[in-house]
Design a protein around this nucleic acid. Structure first.
Lengths: 127, 127
DNA sequence: CGCTGTACTATCATGAATGATAGTGCAATG
DNA sequence: CATTGCACTATCATTCATGATAGTACAGCG
């Protein structure tokens, strides 16, 4: 069995060939976070998992968000095809936002972050 | 079969009682992100999932990170009990960092972010 | 017609996060 | 014993994300 040429010392096992897959993992995760970056993207997405919403409805869902931020983040989410702007057919002056199918693929990740957050809050309380 | 009281359907239904669980979800997710915030926390954690490492080893794993940032982030991760600083018993001048058991509980979330990141990169390539 | 609500955009200010650079004390190494 | 590597810390500069505030165009409503 040939080992790939790593820096080693002591228990070689500790360090064997970390870097490739490690780097790949870091990159992938950073790709995700890049799309979700900023303070408000996930709150917005979460708000929209509860139904299609109008601008002000989202704003009301998310404490302390400003119009400027909501507008900006929605645009970025649209660019990344996570969120879609839709016009009401009946009254076209009404705009709504909805999660795209692609946006919904974030659900498993959000679920995990949700679970961990809940758990973490518990843990903190115990101290 | 009783349904939990959810929103659904146009008009009033769209907004019925979203806010409570929605807010809870947002908060939990934000709790998670609060702990993982910054550019480097997840890369560090990922690096450490590949084995206990010394300061410079982690630094080498993560392109472009500076000593200052690595040091700072490691401290925060320690404070949050995700990472542990350990002294080698044989040669106590050697410091290593390891993921705590608690730190490992982040794994499912990281896995999902990883999967999504991979998938997203594919999607982008297709365009 | 005036008022309120919606869905924004524009401008400016600020603070926090990060980067760049330098320096420290200690250990091991040749 | 000089040099290199390790594991940091300190200081300063800069950028970027966010916040604060104001303003716009359009619509529906009474």
């Amino acid at each position: 069995m040939q080992k790939t040429p790593v820096f080693l010392v002591e228990e070689e096992e500790t360090q064997v060939h970390t870097t490739d897959s490690c780097l790949a993992a870091m990159k992938a995760v950073q790709d995700s976070l890049y799309v979700l970056n900023g303070k408000w993207k996930l709150p917005i997405i979460i708000s929209l998992t509860f139904g299609n919403k109008r601008f002000t409805e989202i704003a009301r869902d998310i404490p302390r968000i400003t119009d400027r931020m909501l507008s900006k983040e929605l645009q970025e989410l649209e660019l990344n095809m996570l969120v879609e702007r839709i016009q009401d057919e009946a009254s076209p002056s009404i705009t709504r936002y909805k999660l795209t199918a692609y946006g919904k693929t974030l659900d498993p990740a959000i679920q995990e972050l949700y679970k961990w957050g809940i758990n973490h809050r518990e843990k903190i309380k115990e101290e």
